[in-house]
Nucleic acid binder design. Structure first.
Lengths: 190, 190
DNA sequence: TTTCACTGAGAACATATGTTCTCTCCAAGC
DNA sequence: GCTTGGAGAGAACATATGTTCTCAGTGAAA
């Protein structure tokens, strides 16, 4: 029997996230991807077939292991508390590195439908989760009754993307945490 | 005497914006840049020296001709009216194509200090302009007295970046206009 | 211990791509 | 009209980069 592969696919995908975050898709060259993952060229093409397919798998791995748990906080659907929890976790996550999904959307959204689809799906999910939390918060008089739920949710969704961009430029994210409070404050009941 | 150059530098830079918006920096190859601008290879390297220097000039041209006029609306400093004017113009601007500066920041912000600097400068300018408008609005009782100006301004700044990302995914931007109203509504005095 | 299917490392390859060079042609001055 | 310095188009070049191939080495099974 042959020896079995030494690399751990999950670990490789996780390591690749950093390379793609730093240099983008086209800027991340195979040599660096190979060098910075517990991987080798042969295994790479046996496993993924191409750099593009590799991207999709990294992206899905990223969504599943890193974004899902954070969005999951929002889907706890505990009203304003969930919204706060979500933003806290998200700010911590994008701190100093941004969001891989957002980066891929802005870099290749025009050319790559698969990336665009994942982006739309993610934004839809955020939007729906925000609406759920805001509904519950409104029922419990945590937020003003006169706000439009859908618009406010879309606003929060935009805000999340803005964080991802700012995080690339801002070393620390303390000010982003402050901004979160400013965002949610005016929504609250007096 | 030789004949003089036929190309119009300003026009070339403007045409290049679209190419870079569509494919990003690394994704935009010289062949397409040459083909889609009133330009030729020789003139290109005589004028810019390299693709990277070219990017900086396109970026500055973009900032000067497209973003400046929009941020200028905010710097009119007419309180909430200016904020509304700004968002209207910005939403129209990013509609279906996004923002070149934001795209460059997310694609190469980690590697390119010059891009990062331009991004920071732009965000600072937005932040200051928002603060100015909010101050004035507060003095005129257009917005609640209990909001923190800096945090709210930072929140609006983040929101702007979020627009740029959403615009890549969302074909139409009507819903973004709606969200803006929802954003500014809760800030207003009762 | 021997076998051998498969791994890992990197050489090799083909193509893509940023950059430079060549050559023809034009238009302003004589 | 002739000259000529620079423009325009694209061939040519060198390198970068995604992909494939080769081959020695390894570890489980017999």
């Amino acid at each position: 029997m042959p020896r079995k592969a030494l690399y751990d696919l999950q670990a490789v995908l996780t390591q690749a996230i950093d390379v793609l975050l730093e240099h983008g898709y086209h800027g991340a060259i195979m040599d660096e991807i190979i060098a910075r993952t517990d991987f080798n060229r042969r295994g790479f093409y046996l496993e993924f077939g191409s750099k593009q397919q590799f991207l999709y798998q990294v992206l899905d791995h990223y969504l599943h292991t890193q974004l899902d748990p954070i969005v999951g906080l929002l889907e706890q659907n505990q009203g304003l508390v969930s919204v706060h929890d979500f933003f806290d976790a998200y700010v911590r996550h994008v701190r100093g590195r941004g969001c891989l999904l957002i980066n891929m959307i802005t870099e290749m959204g025009f050319d790559d439908e698969a990336v665009r689809d994942r982006g739309r799906h993610y934004l839809d999910r955020l939007q729906i989760a925000f609406i759920g939390c805001l509904e519950k918060a409104q029922r419990h008089q945590q937020v003003r009754a006169d706000i439009n739920l859908e618009s406010t949710a879309l606003q929060l969704t935009s805000y999340v993307q803005g964080f991802a961009v700012n995080a690339v430029l801002a070393g620390d994210t303390d000010e982003l945490s402050l901004a979160t409070r400013a965002l949610l404050g005016p929504l609250a009941t007096e």
